Computed example of a mutant assay.
Amino acid sequence: MYFDKRFQVDQYFLIIAFNQEQIKSSTSGGFLIAERRSFDDITERLLSIDKTTISDLAERLSKGERVQPTNDKETSCFQLLNDLHSGSCTISDVTIYLIGSHVDGSITNKKYMRNEIWSLIAYKGAPSWFITFAPADVQHPICLYYANTKEIFKPDILPKDERAKLIANNPVAGARFVDMMVKLFIKHVLGVNSDHDGLYGNTAAYYVLKISAIE
């Protein structure tokens, strides 16, 4: 982390590593879905679905039409869509909904996070504050230290173009810096897991997005 950063600055390693992480997560999710009680029902619906009916429904939905099932075949298709998550609503492109929830960066994973946020709002009430802050990575000496290859920390004042180049060549440093700043904000400004109340009062709840970090 502090000196040998050959993988952090490699242009393709992060993409390949994240892709492998997604493959591993989808495989694990496949094992989990196979153990669920609903697996047999979903399999039976997949094998018995009318492809003509689901293609017709997909075309009508793509046009923005409000569709309600009017027969058993359409009802079965809608039940299948509840079990599965599909980008184009065709059997060939279907991705198992419950598998996608385990894959970081997937549409289904983002949908699960939105559902968690809505559940938190339903439980705790509407949030009192919406706070946006953007840590300046190209200005902060800690982030520049993360991005540099020097083991000894020296807060030297670097030219603007050199600072920008360091951050651009090492996105891991920027991610680590933002993660650190968010955790410090939650602890010291919001007062979570600390011995004092937050700047905005006693924090009843907060939500942290689960973003995959490649070490």
Rank of each mutant, 00 (worst) to 15 (best):
K154R: 08
G191C: 01
N202I: 02
P171R: 11
L184G: 01
G201R: 10
A134M: 09
D156K: 12
L184R: 06
V192N: 10
P135M: 05
Y145M: 04
P135L: 01
K150Y: 10
K187W: 02
I186L: 09
G201K: 09
C143I: 02
Y206W: 14
Y200S: 12
L190C: 13
N193C: 14
F177T: 00
V172W: 03
V172S: 02
N170P: 13
F177L: 02
I152R: 08
L166R: 06
G198Y: 06
V208L: 12
K187G: 04
T203E: 05
E162K: 04
G174T: 03
T203G: 14
V189L: 14
F185P: 07
P155F: 08
Y207Q: 08
I167V: 10
A168I: 09
Y200T: 09
K183Y: 03
D197P: 10
E151D: 14
K187A: 07
F185D: 04
N202V: 09
L166N: 01
F153P: 08
S194R: 13
F153G: 07
A164H: 04
P155L: 08
K210R: 08
L199C: 12
M180A: 03
C143P: 06
N169K: 15
I142D: 06
F177R: 01
V172E: 03
K183W: 04
A173D: 00
D179T: 15
A173W: 02
V138W: 01
L184P: 03
F185E: 07
K154V: 11
S194T: 15
K160H: 10
K154S: 11
D195L: 14
L166G: 05
P141H: 06
V208G: 11
H196Q: 12
L184H: 06
A164F: 08
P135Y: 00
N148F: 03
H188K: 13
I142P: 00
E162P: 07
V208R: 10
L190T: 12
Y145I: 06
K154M: 07
A173Q: 06
L158H: 14
E162D: 02
D179L: 14
K187R: 11
A147T: 05
L190M: 13
G174W: 00
Y200R: 12
K210D: 05
H188S: 09
E162Q: 01
H140I: 02
K210Q: 10
I211F: 11
H188Q: 12
S194G: 14
V182P: 03
M180S: 08
H196K: 13
K150D: 05
F185G: 01
D195V: 12
Y200M: 15
P141T: 04
A136D: 00
G174V: 08
V189N: 14
F153I: 05
L158C: 14
F133H: 07
D137M: 00
A134E: 00
Y206N: 13
I186T: 05
I157C: 11
I142T: 07
N202S: 10
G191H: 03
I157V: 09
V182R: 02
V208N: 11
P171I: 09
I167K: 04
V172H: 05
L199G: 10
I211T: 13
S212D: 13
